[in-house]
Simulated scan of single mutants.
Amino acid sequence: MSEARSEYKLKNPPDDAISSVRFAPKTSYVLIVSSWDSYVRLYDVLGNTVRTKYTHNQSPVLDTLMTEANRVFSGALDGTIISCDITGDQKYTVGQHEDAVRCLEFSEDKNIIASGSWDRLVKLWDARSLGPIGVHSQQDQVYTMSVKDEMLIVGTSSRKIIVWDLRNMSQPFQQRDSLLKYQTRCVRIFPNKQGYVLSSIEGRVAVEYFDSNPEVQKKKYAFKCHRIKEQGMECIYPVNAISFHFSHSTFATGGADGFVNVWDGFNKKRLCQFHRYPTGISSLAFSNCGSVLAIGCSYLGELDETPQPALEDCIFIRNVTDQETKPK
């Protein structure tokens, strides 16, 4: 029986921290989830069931994605990249980094998988043949990436933002320092490719633009968020996740404070805030049509003392409305 409520929790969640939630392309009912329990799970969110899962050789999985060809890719702490054909449940080792694979991105336009690693490299792979295409140094550890068509953006451990054009990887298209003073946590490209949204561990989000024209650069800004006043003190939380609504170009942020906010970045407005979730938000994903938001909740060690009893790792599916996500 399918779920019809505005929000519900998925059954059979991962047994350890959730590292990534992503919808399969062009669906709002197939969700791919990676976890530190070494598994990748594929959920049918309408039926609230686990359709299939596979293990990543007992290594924590830090990111996953799915292409239109029913092929799932995942990257793990041990540096391996695995591809699984979910129709035949066949696994292949695509390649290896010398350190953890922190993030994976797929360019449907170029049919390329990009893997970013703590070994300071981005590697490119052919999504069909699974063969290697190129290896590109990023100067520092790769913490986050985003792809839109031919555009690849990389956020590194030293707060560098490196922009690449997948059509010509001989040198970066742009390099700049983050507008934010503290460690980069997540970056996502605008749906129209004019700029990107960036978050940090210090409760801030920046909106920046690629065009170097001074008039365009005047539009960039940063703002505070995911901060809570408790007992007369302001507690500042990392902003772990960003996800764009592809139709409205608004975006959601998820923080270690357990809140999800939806923002109109162009008009500098917060559109709404959902209720507080049981623990921090580790990952967010709008479905392609924008009607569903997947919310991964996990404690990621951001507090001085580990909560006791241990906080539950869980995934919420929220059916969102235009009132919550459309610019006003």
Rank of each mutant, 00 (worst) to 15 (best):
C297Q: 04
C235L: 14
K328N: 15
L121E: 06
Y237C: 10
D89S: 15
I32S: 03
A294E: 03
V122R: 00
P191Q: 06
K160V: 14
M151A: 11
G155E: 14
E215A: 13
E215W: 05
V262W: 00
K193Q: 10
I82V: 09
S2Q: 11
I86F: 11
T144C: 04
V147H: 02
I315S: 08
N70Y: 10
D15R: 06
L42T: 10
H97M: 11
R270C: 10
W125H: 07
M151F: 13
I112T: 00
P191E: 06
N213S: 10
P238H: 13
S200A: 08
V260Q: 02
S146D: 10
R176M: 14
G255R: 02
I32M: 02
H226N: 03
R227V: 14
K123F: 00
E105N: 03
I82Q: 02
E302V: 07
F274W: 13
W118L: 08
K224E: 12
L198K: 03
P132W: 12
H56T: 04
F274S: 07
A17D: 10
V94F: 15
S35H: 07
C235G: 13
T55W: 07
R128A: 10
K123T: 05
I82E: 06
R188S: 13
Q323K: 10
F106C: 02
S107K: 06
W125D: 04
F73A: 00
R128I: 12
D99Y: 12
W164P: 01
S199D: 00
R71G: 01
K224M: 13
T93P: 01
